[in-house]
Design a protein around this nucleic acid. Structure first.
Length: 280
DNA sequence: TCGAGTGTTATCCC
DNA sequence: GGGGATAACACTCG
């Protein structure tokens, strides 16, 4: 479920509650909760102080007062909640990190809970290279990063022989864009999802990127998009951006610009939603 | 009962 | 070797 705006909402929530806290009693409850490439089990972060929470694309990581870092990816259905340790355990609780004020706190009041119904998400202990975790190194800058260079991204996409939609989804080009925001950005830019990148002009590609970014900006403001119980802020609150979606999940409903029925087409195990009249 | 779902990546094939 | 397409991963819900 979570794309850039949802992950950013979670990052901000975590930042609010966990900075300066010491991790203790870290525990996993499901074998898939830890990425196979993790260099250590979750207990490796016990005793570490959380100095910052970073994000690139859909990847989150905790900067610790250690050589190692803890990376989190929410996959399709992951949640990170900050909750009292006495709160009822959720059915899909995969791991938890106790939060204390010292290395041996007398009382652990809160914990970070990693909940994930479909288990596509994971946690991973990793080394840092120039401040970036190993598994995040191949991920492109996301549009909200200082280093993001739109000219470079546009020229990279222009050279591709694939359709524009899968190009937007490939995290090595621009990161953070998922199926919802790709559809929304393409609709705003009036570009058909199946047009080949090479056949688009640089200004059209730029329009797609800037449109997608502005949709995501709005979504961050709204606290993310959620359709059901699968996406939550660390508070357990749902975002309300789904009200603002123009095409995603609106098959058969009228386009808000021209009233033509929104169409859905399948592509690579996934759906694209678009307006057949606005997006040629 | 079946299909579809917000993501990533391994593994094919060209 | 690389780009690109596809399947697989697991579980729930309509």
């Amino acid at each position: 479920m979570p794309e850039l705006p949802e992950v950013e909402t979670v990052r901000r929530g975590l930042e609010k509650y966990v900075l300066g806290k010491i991790i203790c009693d870290a525990e996993t409850f499901h074998p898939r909760a830890i990425k196979p490439s993790s260099i250590a089990g979750l207990s490796a972060v016990n005793g570490a102080k959380i100095l910052a929470v970073h994000r690139r694309g859909k990847f989150l990581w905790f900067e610790l007062n250690r050589e190692i870092t803890l990376v989190a990816h929410l996959g399709m259905s992951g949640q990170l909640l900050v909750q009292p340790s006495l709160a009822t355990k959720q059915p899909h609780l995969r791991a938890k990190l106790g939060l204390g004020k010292g290395i041996r706190p007398k009382k652990i009041r809160d914990e970070i809970r990693f909940i994930d119904q479909r288990t596509f998400g994971w946690l991973s202990v990793e080394q840092l290279t120039n401040g970036i975790p190993t598994c995040v190194e191949h991920i492109a800058f996301d549009p909200f990063a200082k280093e993001f260079n739109i000219k470079q991204v546009v020229s990279n996409i222009k050279r591709k022989k694939t359709a524009i939609k899968p190009a937007l989804l490939s995290q090595g080009v621009v990161s953070g864009i998922g199926n919802i925001y790709a559809d929304e950005g393409l609709w705003r830019a009036r570009i058909h999802p199946e047009i080949i990148c090479e056949d688009l002009s640089e200004s059209e590609i730029k329009k797609v990127i800037t449109s997608t970014v502005s949709v995501m900006k709005g979504a961050i403001k709204a606290g993310g998009t959620s359709f059901d119980e699968q996406y939550k802020n660390v508070n357990g609150e749902s975002g309300y951006f789904s009200r603002s979606l123009s095409v995603y999940g609106r098959e058969g409903q009228p386009c808000s610009r021209c009233s033509t029925a929104i169409r859905r087409i399948a592509f690579a195990n996934r759906s694209s939603h678009f307006c057949p009249r606005c997006q040629r």
